[in-house]
Design a protein around this nucleic acid. Structure first.
Lengths: 337, 337
DNA sequence: CACGTCTCTGAAAACGTTTACGGATGGAGG
DNA sequence: CCTCCATCCGTAAACGTTTTCAGAGACGTG
C-alpha cells in the first residue's frame, strides 16, 4: 500500500488482469468500461511505470549518451544545447559523460553501450585509438562521432573541414597584410591538433609564405595553456604581427597576454580564434573566429542518431559542415566602436 | 551466439549455474576453479551486464538527475562541472534535464522520479509552485533543491544568502561614491528575481538612499534582455552612475549598451554583476561580480545527495553558502591595466 | 440451432539479473 | 565409522513490465 504501485496493484484494485492494465496504459484497444476502471485506479494511486522493467522487456532505455572531454568548453556546450531539445522532442533523455579526454574513460563509455542503459551514443573523442576503433566495430548500438574518423569506420560521422577553416583564417590575416603569422595549437596527438597543424603549414605554402617553426607553439586547449603558449611565442618572436589560435579559449588566453604585454590588438597583433563560441563576442576586442558550426554539428549528430535508431542497420552516413570565417574587431580594427 | 551474451550463456559455456556466474561476477566467495572458468568465458564473450535487469532487481539505477533551466547559462554549467565528477566517483551517471524554466517540464521531471530511472535528483527551479511542493512531498527518492524553498519542505536544500550578496554589491558601489545606482533584475515572479528585488530596496534603505522605482528595470536573465533593459534604464535615467545586474549575462548586455552609448565603465557608470561566472573575467572591462558560490553549491548538492542515498530516510538538511564580492575593473577603474 | 467471426480478456512466459534456501561434498573430530 | 560443520553450488523465485496465445462471450449468418 505504501509501496510504489505496480500494474499488479492496479489489476487487483480494478478487478482485471495485469495484461488488461498494460493494454490500457499503452493505449491498446480495450472495452470502454475496463479502460475507465483502470485509468481511474491508476490515477488514484499515482501510478508511474517502472522504467527498468519496461527497458528490460522492450530492450530500449530511451536514453542517449553524449560523451565529450569537458562540458566546460563552450564548443561542447553549444552542441549539448542543440542536442538536448532534439532528443527530448523524440522522447529520449540525455546522459552526460565528461571524459577529460581520457582514453580509458572513453573506452569505458563505449563499453557501457553493452549495458544497454543507452540506446545510442554521440561521442567527441579528441584522440581516436585502436581501442576506439575496436569498440566502434563491436558496438551493438548506433554511434555518432563528431570529429574525423578513419575511412570505413562503421559509425555515423559529423565532421567539419577544419583544414579549410584554418585556410580561411590564414588567408584573412595575410589579406590584412600580416606576414609573421603565429600559430598556437593544441596537442599534436589529438585529431583536431594534428589536422590544424597540417592545415596551417599547407595554408602558408599556398600563400607562398615560409613555414617558420618558431612561429608555432603547442599547449592544451584551455585558456591558461593558451596564455602560457602565447607568452612563449611572443618572447621568442617579438615581431609577430598576427596570431591564429586553435580554439577560442586559447585565443582568450592570448588576448590576456598581449594586453599585459602592451601590444595593441589588432594594430600590433591581429588575433583569430576557432570555434566561434559565445566567448568570441564577449571578449575584448571581439574575437575574429572561424565558425566550425558547432550548433549545426550538434543538431546533425542528434538527427543522424535518431534516424539510425528508426532505421536499424542503416549504412553509416557522414555529414560535413562548412567552416565560415566570422570577422570581428580582433583582426579588423575598424569595427571597433 | 551473435546475440548479446547473458549470464545464462556464460553459465552454459562454463558448465555452472547462473547463480554461480552471478556470484563470481559480483565478487562473492567462490571456489578458485569455478571463478577461473567463469571469468575466462565472460571475458571471451565480452560479457557486459544488462543494466535494466540489474536495476529491476536491485531497485537502483545508479543514475542521478540534474534539472536546471538552461545548460547554456554559465552558472548551471559551473555546477554541472562540480557535480559530474563527484557523482562519477561514486559510481553514478548524470542525466541532464533542461527545462527552460517551464513549470510543467519541471513537474514532469519530478514525476519521472517515480519511474525510478534516477536514484535522486538535483533541481534548480526558478519558480517554486504548489505543484512542486506536492511532488517534493510525494517523492520516493532524495531530492536536493538548489535555491530557496519554503521552511519545512522535505528536501535537502542548498541556498545562498543572495540578500547579503546584493547588499555587498550595493555597499561597494555606494562606497565608491555612486548615488544613482540602477538595478536590472530578472522576472519578479522567480525566486531569485523576487529575492534580489527585495534585497536591493533593503540595501538602499540601510544606506539611507531613497528608493527610486525609475532606477529599476526588469527583463529576463539573458544577455539580450539585459541589453534591452539597460537601454531602457539609461534612456529614462541619463544621470545613472552605477548599475547592478541580477546576473552576469545581464551585466554583459549592459556593458554592450553602455559602450555603444559612449559611456565609460567604470568612470561614468560602474557596473556589477552577480554569479561571478567565468564570463566576468572575459568581459571588458572585467566585471565586478557577486560570487554566489556556484561551484561550491554544486559540490554541496552532490554531496548532500550522495549522503542521503547512503543513509536512507535521513532528515532533510540545508547548506548555506556565503556570498562574496569579487571586485574587478568594471567598478574599480584603477585595476585596469 | 450450429457455426463462424469478432472483440475482449486472462494465463503465462519472457526479458536478465540477484538472492534465499537447501542439497551435496568433504574434512575434522569423536 | 558416524556425526557435525563448513564450503560451495544449483534450483527457483522474484523484480515489473510486455506480449503471445487461446478461451469466453456476443452476435450475425446460413
Amino acid at each position: 500500500m505504501s509501496d510504489e504501485p505496480t500494474i499488479t496493484t492496479i489489476a487487483r484494485r480494478a478487478g482485471v488482469s495485469i495484461a488488461s492494465v498494460s493494454r490500457v496504459l499503452n493505449g491498446l484497444p480495450t472495452r470502454a468500461e475496463t479502460e475507465r476502471r483502470v485509468m481511474s485506479v491508476a490515477r488514484e494511486l499515482g501510478y508511474v511505470p517502472n522504467s527498468a522493467a519496461r527497458s528490460l522487456k522492450s530492450r530500449r532505455s530511451n536514453q542517449i549518451g553524449f560523451a565529450m572531454a569537458d562540458i566546460g568548453n563552450p564548443v561542447y556546450l553549444a552542441m549539448v544545447r542543440e542536442i538536448q531539445p532534439v532528443l527530448k522532442a523524440a522522447g529520449y533523455r540525455l546522459v552526460l559523460h565528461s571524459t577529460n579526454a581520457d582514453v580509458a574513460d572513453e573506452i569505458d563509455v563505449l563499453r557501457g553501450l553493452g549495458e544497454r542503459y543507452i540506446d545510442g551514443l554521440i561521442m567527441i573523442p579528441l584522440r581516436v585509438t585502436d581501442g576506439h576503433l575496436e569498440m566502434f566495430a563491436a558496438a551493438r548500438a548506433p554511434i555518432v562521432v563528431i570529429g574525423s574518423v578513419p575511412e570505413g569506420t562503421p559509425v555515423d560521422n559529423v565532421r567539419v573541414d577544419s583544414r579549410a577553416g584554418v585556410r580561411l583564417a590564414v588567408q584573412h590575416l595575410h589579406g590584412l597584410g600580416r606576414r609573421r603569422i603565429g600559430f598556437v595549437n593544441g596537442p599534436l596527438d589529438t585529431v583536431p591538433g594534428a589536422a590544424r597543424s597540417a592545415a596551417y603549414a599547407e595554408a602558408l605554402e599556398t600563400l607562398g609564405l615560409p613555414y617558420d617553426r618558431d612561429l608555432v607553439e603547442v599547449g592544451d586547449f584551455y585558456r591558461a595553456d593558451g596564455a602560457r603558449a602565447a607568452a612563449r611565442l611572443l618572447e621568442r618572436v617579438p615581431d609577430l604581427d598576427a596570431l591564429l589560435c586553435a580554439n577560442d579559449l586559447i585565443a582568450l588566453g592570448a588576448l590576456d597576454v598581449l594586453r599585459r604585454a602592451g601590444r595593441r590588438v589588432p594594430e600590433d597583433v591581429a588575433v583569430a580564434g576557432m570555434d566561434d563560441t559565445d566567448l568570441a563576442t564577449i571578449a575584448w576586442p571581439p574575437l575574429t573566429s572561424v565558425s566550425l558550426g558547432s550548433a549545426e554539428r550538434g543538431r546533425a549528430a542528434a538527427e543522424l542518431l535518431l534516424d539510425h535508431l528508426d532505421r536499424d542497420g542503416r549504412a553509416p552516413r557522414t555529414v560535413t559542415v562548412e567552416p565560415r570565417l566570422v570577422t570581428r574587431a580582433s583582426t579588423m580594427g575598424e569595427e571597433t566602436p
